[in-house]
Simulated assay, not measured.
Amino acid sequence: MKKILLSLTLMMAVFATYAQTTREIEDMNEENSWLKLGLNMGIPVGDIGDYSSFAFGVEVAGQFMRTDNFGLGIASGYTKYFANKDLIDAADFGAIPLGLMLRYYPEPSGFFVGTDIGYTFLTGDIATDGGFYIRPQVGYHNYDWNIFAFYNQVFTKGTALDIQTIGVAATYNIRFK
């Protein structure tokens, strides 16, 4: 499943990039590049849903519009997973993703699709240090805001549980100058 999702993501990026005129990094300006800051909240699902009842976090990303429709960037942030209060020995834990952000915007304002892929570092009392993550998303954007729904999965090693979350997020665009 990981290989299929990664292959589809990379294929989307290649088609979107080569289907249009591309910009070089030295062409970066306030019209095609920005910092995204925002908040997210989600519900853990799957086996981790028995351990954690709610997730809340901050988003930060830098994006460069490689073409008029395709954005490329770096995404990070911090999400805190709150332990299920019904479990006596449960403790909160955190997730710090560091990944590549890929976005496809069909129009200057409207719906978009994208994904983040990379590695998530886990903090707190959890059985693993982290793992590969993928975060497909669909949402609405305009010049200043992005509001989107996402599915996030962190693939952990060994006997640790994969961390799966379904949620919503909103980010504000701060233009580079």
Results as ranks from 00 to 15, higher is better:
S52E: 01
S53C: 05
F54M: 01
F54Y: 09
G57H: 05
A61V: 03
G62W: 10
T67F: 10
N69M: 10
F70I: 14
L72H: 12
L72Y: 13
S76C: 12
G77D: 01
T79K: 00
K80A: 04
K80P: 11
A83L: 01
K85D: 15
D86H: 06
I88T: 10
D89K: 13
D89A: 12
A91M: 10
A91C: 06
A91Y: 01
D92H: 07
F93E: 03
G94S: 02
I96Y: 02
I96S: 02
P97L: 11
G99K: 09
R103M: 08
Y104R: 12
Y105D: 14
P106R: 13
P106F: 05
E107R: 15
E107D: 05
P108A: 13
G110L: 11
F111R: 14
F112T: 09
F112H: 08
V113M: 08
G114T: 05
D116C: 06
G118W: 02
Y119P: 12
T120G: 07
L122F: 07
D129R: 05
D129H: 06
D129I: 10
F132V: 13
F132G: 02
I134P: 13
V138T: 15
H141R: 06
W145A: 15
N146G: 07
I147V: 06
F148T: 07
Y151N: 13
V154Q: 14
T156F: 00
K157S: 06
G158M: 12
T159W: 14
T159Y: 06
L161M: 13
D162Y: 09
D162Q: 08
D162L: 13
D162M: 13
I163Q: 10
I163V: 04
I163M: 07
T165P: 07
I166K: 05
I166P: 04
